[in-house]
């Protein structure tokens, strides 16, 4: 294809955009509305997912260690236990907390009354274990329980399972909703594009009759679809960015130090905006490509 022809295709795609004013407006509006929905939904879903992750990652296994009188033997047993746990493939990290430390934590939470216990600490040394996949917590806990010198292994049995099944369900529901929304978007936008192309089927027919190749007919339409996608993603990108920026700046200071955090502006906004524009272009191009195809068989 000659450079002159490529230029012509670009010129032609711009010309038809402005010439079919209302049709262009209708297509861009359809793209805008659906991409806005997709964008908002993606941001909400990604944040909910983050919340779910935060909650999951907070799940840990508390291992109470057997009390051994002789300090040397105790040290040896604890070291062996730690290294045994670390050897488990599902384990991400193991933190050691001495009984003195445990007591301090309790005193912090419940007040100085407990400082009496400093004379004779009834607590045990503790290991905090996190699974690399929080969903494996129960399994890991069971394995640890089987090791020597563990007095008790606690991980919120029952509650954790319920929490995980709740989080998994909400993730799946969110995923189904997003997929459904994407299909709706593709259907709606390609349908609008199809209408604009049906209005121009005569043009395609004439092009074919005077000997235009399919590519020659198709390229301006496909470029036009691309512009529709690009133009249709401007408003969604602006709205999503501005709204999330403001929501983040209002909410984030209040969530400081909390378990649940919003996703940072970067990279989230880049990701979502890239999703919006890529989706817009893809749907525009694909919609045009498929709609023209029908009329090329002349």
């Amino acid at each position: 294809m000659k450079g002159r022809t490529i230029k012509r295709h670009f010129r032609e795609s711009f010309k038809t955009l402005s010439r079919n004013g209302w049709m262009t407006f209708a297509s861009i509006s359809a793209v805008t509305v659906t991409l806005l929905l997709v964008g908002v939904f993606a941001i909400i879903m990604m944040n909910l997912n983050k919340v779910a992750d935060d909650i999951e990652n907070d799940v840990e296994i508390k291992v109470l260690i057997d009390i051994i009188e002789d300090p040397n033997q105790a040290k040896e047993a604890e070291d062996k236990l730690i290294s045994d746990i670390e050897k488990l493939p599902e384990v991400k990290e193991v933190k050691y907390s001495s009984k003195e430390n445990e007591l301090n934590l309790l005193i912090e939470d419940f007040g100085d009354d407990l400082s009496l216990f400093e004379q004779s600490n009834p607590l045990r040394n503790v290991l905090y274990v996190k699974a690399s996949d929080p969903q494996q917590t129960a399994k890991v806990a069971k394995k640890i329980d089987a090791l020597d010198n563990t007095y008790e292994v606690v991980y919120g049995e029952g509650k954790v399972e319920k929490l995980f099944s709740f989080l998994n369900t909400s993730r799946n529901v969110g995923l189904i909703l997003i997929v459904g929304l994407l299909f709706t978007a593709i259907f709606l936008i390609s349908n609008t594009i199809r209408i604009t192309i049906i209005a121009r089927r005569d043009e395609i027919e004439i092009m074919k009759l005077v000997g235009a190749t399919n590519a020659f007919v198709r390229i301006p339409f496909v470029l036009e679809g691309m512009w529709l996608g690009v133009l249709g993603s401007i408003i969604p990108i602006a709205v999503v960015s501005i709204v999330y920026y403001n929501v983040y700046n209002v909410l984030q200071p209040r969530l400081h130090g909390e378990l649940v955090q919003l996703l940072d502006l970067s990279p989230l906004l880049y990701q979502v905006n890239a999703l919006i524009i890529v989706l817009g272009i893809f749907i525009g191009v694909w919609g045009s490509f498929m709609s023209v195809r029908k009329f090329l068989k002349i």
Binding site: R8, R19, D202, E205, I206, V210, G211, A212, T213, F216
Partner: peptide, 19 residues
Amino acid sequence: KLLPRLNVYENVAFALEVI
């Protein structure tokens, strides 16, 4: 089967542009 949005010249030139 002329293209209504093209003028006389453009309609005729169209057959050469596509080739």
